[in-house]
Simulated assay, not measured.
Amino acid sequence: MNGLQFGVLLFLIAAGLTLIFGIMDFVNLAHGVLYMVGGYLMATFVALTGSFTMGLLLALPTALVVGLALEYLVIRKLYHRSHLDQVLATFGLLMIITEGVKILWGSSPLSVPIPPLLDGAIPLIGQVKYPIYRLAIIATGLAAAAGLYLIVNHTRIGMLLRAGATNRNMVAALGVNISRLFRLVFAFGVMLACFAGMMVAPILSVDTGMGESILILTFVVVVIGGIGSIRGAFLGALLVATVDTLGGTFGPILLRMVFDPATASQVGRTLAPMLVYILMAIILFAKPAGLFGRKPV
């Protein structure tokens, strides 16, 4: 269950990143820090309104505005630059946003209370209980995945997104405003990353380092699923989260069959983070373009 909950959060971040990377051919290293910004926006608006629901309703449009502002001020100037320029620029943007957050909110972690309606736990098996809020995260993530599927596969905007991911020059030649499409994709991707940070804020402390580790896993998800594929991002997120969670939990237990408990615990903690990258290597060996990626031509 924890792996599923972590997986839907990874999907929300990876979906925006794979759209930005697949359609815009833009490498955005600042995507993970936007997950952190979502957490801080949620903490701020919940504190101001005293309501989780009102905080979320205010934080989401604010995240969209942040995405539009970043695209207008920085990102649009990098569309026709090399990937190296994009990496350097967005890495600088990452540092600027991180320091800006420290200036605005300070370095101390913030917390968001769990809404009373979703507080508590429900029994699963015997005496085992699972928090209701984590179940709500799973349900919200699955609903978001279903909504993205419908938008991408059954709407005109989705048609343009799929066409742009396949051949954006042809889409532009057919009269589609590519700049507007890019602006929409980037802002929507930012909002998805921020939404993941908003949802996780009540169960994790909101701090300036929360976006760094999640960015690496998000890139792994995008590579495993295939660049530009929402379906691949969803399946890749579930695979990565499950392997990461189960490896960290059961790895030391299994190693006790070979080592003493202290050594097994130490070796397990060392090997667990490697499992995700081993999984990525195996999948790329079998399918170099990822699970649902397009084969290079």
Rank of each mutant, 00 (worst) to 15 (best):
G3I: 06
L4A: 13
Q5R: 15
G7Q: 03
I13P: 03
A15L: 12
A15V: 15
D25C: 08
D25P: 04
D25M: 09
L34P: 09
V37A: 15
V37F: 12
V37M: 12
G39V: 12
G39I: 11
Y40T: 13
Y40Q: 08
Y40D: 10
M42K: 07
L48K: 10
T49L: 08
G50H: 08
S51M: 06
F52Q: 04
T53E: 14
M54K: 06
G55S: 10
L58D: 06
P61V: 08
E71A: 03
R76E: 06
T90E: 09
L94Y: 15
I97F: 05
V101Q: 06
I103W: 09
L104R: 06
W105L: 07
W105Y: 15
S107H: 09
S108C: 00
D119V: 03
V128C: 00
Y133A: 01
A136C: 06
L142Q: 12
L148T: 12
L148C: 14
L150C: 10
L150R: 13
V152S: 06
T155Y: 03
G158Q: 04
R162T: 02
A163E: 04
A165C: 12
T166M: 14
R168V: 15
N169S: 14
M170R: 13
M170F: 13
A172M: 13
G175N: 11
V176G: 03
S179G: 14
R180N: 05
F182V: 07
V185R: 00
V185F: 01
A193F: 07
M199V: 11
I203H: 04
G211F: 08
S213I: 07
I214V: 15
V223Q: 02
G228K: 05
L235A: 12
A237F: 06
L238C: 02
L239S: 11
L239A: 13
V240T: 13
G251H: 07
P252W: 07
I253N: 02
I253L: 12
R256A: 03
V258K: 07
F259L: 14
F259W: 08
D260R: 04
A262G: 02
G268W: 09
T270Q: 10
A272Y: 09
M274W: 05
A281Q: 06
I282Y: 09
L284R: 13
F292I: 11
G293A: 13
R294P: 00
V297M: 11
